[in-house]
Computed example of a mutant assay.
Amino acid sequence: MKLQGLVIAAYGRHYLAELPGGEILECVPRGKKSDVACGDTVEIERTSASQAVIDSIAPRSTLLYRSDAYKQKIIAANVTQIIVVVATEPSFNDELLARCLIAAHDQSIETLIVLNKCDLPQIEAARAQLAPYGKIGYRVLELSAKQDVAPLLPYLQGHTSVLVGQSGMGKSTLINALIPDALAATREISTVLDSGKHTTTHARLYHLNANSRMIDCPGVQLFGLHHLDFAAIERSFPEFLPYLGQCRFANCSHSHEPDCAIRKATEEGKIDLRRLKLFQQITAH
């Protein structure tokens, strides 16, 4: 008999699917190829009391993934909001943040930037780094996960949110504070490397309440956008939109061509210079 389940964990080619009544089965895909994601609704067939085979994946509303020239890595399916977690310490990567926001824009997923560890002295530097994002309409929420996560709760209601960010930003601490029984592992930050040690090896979905879910996934250091063309990336920079189509050349790269409307707007202070440089870095790859 075919059953419908929600994929709540992805461990390589092994998955946990939750049935409507709450029962959880360990699942494997039928066949060698596997493109199942945490958050997928799947049709499964039970093979034993605790195991099943995945027969098919229901149509997805969204699919968040990263890619390079050789392969793609699925992050989560059917999410309505991406929460990019950055922190005052260790320092966060501006380009990684921009790439996450581009991927979200491509799938029409709502975005929220959470600045964690706001109790640390580096808060002003982190605020300055994020200032250009607030100016162009991105929501930025400051909190300290170890002290109080209550400010985040209203943003989670009614959403299937996915938490992404570099290792060490405090995603696991956030999960533990929001869902005390999640037992998400946390580790000490490696101050020598200025990056966190990987603590989550798989994507995991948690139920916050009847209509709100959260997916935690492994810390990412790279977020490839090989699946997006130049125009898609260009449109993902909201501050560029008023100037698109105004450059002298239709195929302007906004890097060196004469009469570039984007560079002119940057010189006039209408576009943040750091954001333009991020765009040039991302599209040059």
Results as ranks from 00 to 15, higher is better:
6 L>M: 07
15 Y>D: 12
150 A>H: 09
10 A>F: 00
158 G>D: 10
75 I>S: 04
210 A>W: 00
11 Y>K: 04
3 L>M: 11
257 E>I: 06
63 L>G: 00
72 Q>E: 12
59 P>R: 05
276 L>P: 03
259 D>P: 08
137 G>I: 05
188 E>S: 13
252 C>V: 06
205 L>G: 00
245 G>T: 13
92 F>E: 11
231 A>Q: 13
121 P>H: 12
270 K>S: 11
136 I>P: 09
187 R>Q: 15
282 I>M: 06
97 L>S: 10
241 L>M: 13
61 S>Y: 02
104 A>H: 00
39 G>A: 02
7 V>T: 04
192 V>N: 11
35 D>R: 10
196 G>A: 10
143 L>R: 08
233 I>S: 01
56 S>Q: 02
236 S>E: 14
54 I>Y: 01
231 A>C: 04
255 S>L: 13
242 P>T: 00
216 D>R: 14
250 A>S: 14
175 I>W: 06
118 C>S: 13
38 C>R: 00
34 S>T: 07
252 C>A: 11
267 E>F: 03
24 I>Y: 06
171 K>R: 11
80 T>F: 01
166 Q>T: 09
70 Y>D: 14
187 R>N: 10
263 R>F: 06
109 I>A: 07
76 A>N: 06
77 A>T: 01
28 V>N: 07
115 L>V: 08
65 Y>M: 13
37 A>R: 08
2 K>Q: 14
16 L>W: 06
152 L>Y: 08
196 G>D: 11
49 A>Y: 03
93 N>W: 00
90 P>G: 10
245 G>L: 11
159 H>G: 05
190 S>I: 03
168 G>L: 04
269 G>A: 09
200 T>R: 01
87 A>F: 04
205 L>F: 00
213 R>A: 10
200 T>N: 05
149 V>R: 12
114 V>L: 12
189 I>G: 13
131 A>Y: 03
161 S>R: 03
191 T>V: 09
43 E>K: 00
124 E>W: 04
240 F>W: 10
150 A>E: 15
60 R>Q: 09
49 A>T: 12
95 E>L: 09
71 K>H: 08
274 R>T: 15
277 K>F: 03
143 L>A: 08
252 C>Y: 05
268 E>Q: 15
164 V>C: 05
186 T>C: 03
52 A>S: 08
60 R>K: 05
241 L>H: 07
100 C>A: 08
120 L>M: 11
141 L>G: 01
43 E>G: 02
262 I>E: 12
98 A>I: 07
104 A>R: 04
20 P>E: 07
213 R>F: 04
135 K>Q: 14
55 D>C: 12
132 P>D: 11
26 E>W: 04
215 I>M: 07
174 L>W: 05
49 A>L: 10
211 N>H: 15
182 A>Y: 01
149 V>T: 15
201 T>G: 15
144 S>E: 05
36 V>E: 05
113 I>V: 11
219 G>K: 05
93 N>C: 09
95 E>H: 03
268 E>S: 13
39 G>Q: 02
173 T>Q: 12
95 E>N: 09
250 A>D: 12
161 S>A: 15
251 N>R: 11
